[in-house]
């Protein structure tokens, strides 16, 4: 055995657990899920019985009543994603730049801004929202929402005013993103800033010419993270519908799997758009 193959085998031994897990807990369930989505799944005492039904489940996504609810929630989710994701990214860049500046009580501010990382679970956020602790009432009291509703056309005003009501959710989804941007900012060599200000660049120019470009790669990471975490958040209507349909005897696992795949497709489209917009452009060759 050459040294190379020996090393390769040792390498495989390190990642062996992952390969087993990937095949057993990811690939196998994914294939099954695909099979379910083309079948009528009935649960029997001993296990499950599959009857192949072709595209029926996918057809009923577009025809049945449950399918209608799904499509409605999917559209809501898509709008939510299109609105929230850019806001979360911009917001976390701003916060990261702010707490990266030389400010007093930096430790204290950081502590506050990373709170969401540790307490943003579905039940806790739900409880906070239903008990009125989410801060939306406090925003409403300033009349921002009525102002928006009066001044904007309704198709815009509705999602935007909803966004203000859920501002806390947006804020609370930015914890990890702020951390990642902050880590990126700390990697910028301070001598670059010094050189720029000696050359006469103000804070404004420095932000646009140095800070932002150096965060560009992280934007893609954060976009992916944000989309995925919004897509799997417990408060999301679509994923609750999937569980509801799992337990619904009329639709069952087959239909639930079918809508899960449709959902995955939509998430993939969003990830594709994000990756396309922020792809690493190869340097042009001369």
């Amino acid at each position: 055995m050459t040294k190379k193959t020996r090393k390769a085998l040792i390498g495989y031994s390190f990642i062996g657990l992952w390969i087993i897990g990937f095949l057993g807990l990811m690939v196998y369930p994914l294939i099954n899920s695909l099979i379910y989505s083309f079948s009528k799944v009935t649960i029997t005492g001993t296990g499950i019985k599959l009857n192949f039904t072709g595209w029926d489940n996918f057809v009923s996504v577009f025809t049945s009543e449950q399918g209608f609810i799904f499509r409605e929630r999917l559209v809501d989710f898509a709008i939510q994603l299109a609105l929230y994701v850019p806001i979360i990214i911009v917001f976390s860049i701003i916060i990261a730049v702010l707490i990266n500046a030389k400010i007093r009580f930096r430790g204290f501010f950081r502590m506050i801004y990373f709170l969401p990382v540790i307490i943003s679970s579905g039940p806790v956020i739900n409880e906070l929202i239903t008990q009125g602790a989410s801060g939306s009432s406090f925003i409403e009291s300033y009349g921002v929402i009525t102002m928006i509703e009066q001044n904007l056309p309704s198709f815009l005003a509705e999602p935007i005013s909803e966004m203000f009501q859920q501002i806390i959710v947006i804020f609370w989804f930015s914890g990890v993103q702020i951390l990642i941007f902050l880590a990126g900012l700390q990697k910028i060599d301070t001598s670059i800033y010094e050189a720029c200000s000696i050359d006469g660049a103000g804070p404004w120019e420095i932000f646009w010419k140095i800070t932002l470009p150096s965060l560009k790669n992280l934007v893609l990471i954060n976009l992916i993270f944000t989309i995925v975490s919004l897509a799997t958040f417990e408060g999301n209507g679509v994923i609750n519908l999937i569980v509801e349909n799992m337990n619904n005897p009329l639709t069952g696992y087959g239909f639930a799997s079918a809508i899960a795949w449709c959902y995955f497709l939509v998430v993939c489209i969003f990830l594709g758009i994000a990756a396309f917009l922020f792809r690493n452009k190869k340097p042009t060759q001369y």
Partner: peptide
Amino acid sequence: LLFLVLVTFIVPIQVYTIPRYVM
């Protein structure tokens, strides 16, 4: 394989939880 590690992050858990549940 490294690319597949990334893919496992992107696939929503909802897609494979049902078969995992059955398993």
